[in-house]
Design a protein around this nucleic acid. Sequence first.
DNA 1: ACGGACATGTAACACGTTACATGATTAA
DNA 2: TTAATCATGTAACGTGTTACATGTCCGT
Lengths: 186, 186
Amino acid sequence: MAIDVRTICLGLLSRGPATGYEIKKSFEDEGAIGYFLEASFGAIYPALGRLTEEGLVDLKVEQQDGKPDRKVYSLTESGRAAFKDSLRVSPGPDRFRSEFLFLLLFADLIPHDHLRHLIDERLEDYRQKLHELESECVQIPAKTSAGLEFIRGQGAAYFRAMIEYIENNRHLLEAQSERIPAHAAE
Amino acid sequence: MAIDVRTICLGLLSRGPATGYEIKKSFEDEGAIGYFLEASFGAIYPALGRLTEEGLVDLKVEQQDGKPDRKVYSLTESGRAAFKDSLRVSPGPDRFRSEFLFLLLFADLIPHDHLRHLIDERLEDYRQKLHELESECVQIPAKTSAGLEFIRGQGAAYFRAMIEYIENNRHLLEAQSERIPAHAAE
DNA sequence: ACGGACATGTAACACGTTACATGATTAA
DNA sequence: TTAATCATGTAACGTGTTACATGTCCGT
């Protein structure tokens, strides 16, 4: 399958009509989905165009005053079928990329103070995101689903586990980097 | 910084000399690092070439009988400095991509039996990976570090959290998909 | 005899990001 | 007046994957 922008658009449209702009926004606004999906305008608009050519989606153009026309896309029958089909393939492995973890891998090369600061920052970040996921989050009822609720819970479980692990084990890293005082790092 | 193949090569070489082939292998073999780093030969070899041109690494060519020459790369002084420098920037956000989670987001469109099967499979997969991380794993002592140990623990904590969450919450998804019996899915 | 590990490298291709272009309205 | 939100789109660019090319040795 490959979780490309095409498929993401198809998936989000299966929950109801939307414009390209709204699809992009849903990564930021809508609950948890931004934590494991993202796409830029430069990817979404062309994808929507191709999907239209292929007949998997269609659009209604709403004219507006100063702004460009609003193009509201919806899935066609064949689009819905194609998306359902794409859900049948067995999913590939998860892909996790973390600059933060990469840095920690080389914690012994990082000055002690800086390392502590990095960890504190990231921990704060995780706590913030956990908080967002746990808060009720005013959601358009029509757009929630068991899947979305599950994903939100998964995200929360992930952040909770990471916070706990880092809090309990950061001393292992900090002990290593302590040997190189900040002023002697270079 | 951006955690590109260049930087990954620099980082791994900071632990000792290696060939391109060995760098690639270390993603598969070496403890946890494959869970959040990866690169293909097609990316590694050119990266090593460019790094050599730039004087950040140098190589000793070991001639071999039938096989191509073994090119053993090591960091130069300026390479080590450049890498240390790159560790100074503040790390960007984690990036997590999961086809599996994407499918679950649309669990209500998946036939019940298939969904159960998907979840069982993934759970088995996670348990397997957790087991690998928990097992002692014969490691070249010179290549272990506090960072690597920390990362292994982090990976284990991650898989444990995911397994627990999925086991406790899969019923939420399965209840939804139940409404669509497999034979009526199309 | 056959596949896998060892070993390096190139070229075509896919995919996505960033920056740019355009422009009205509204809140600070 | 300055920034943000709404709204779409193109083009250059970077980065990485996949497939191909080549060839030996070793275990089963």
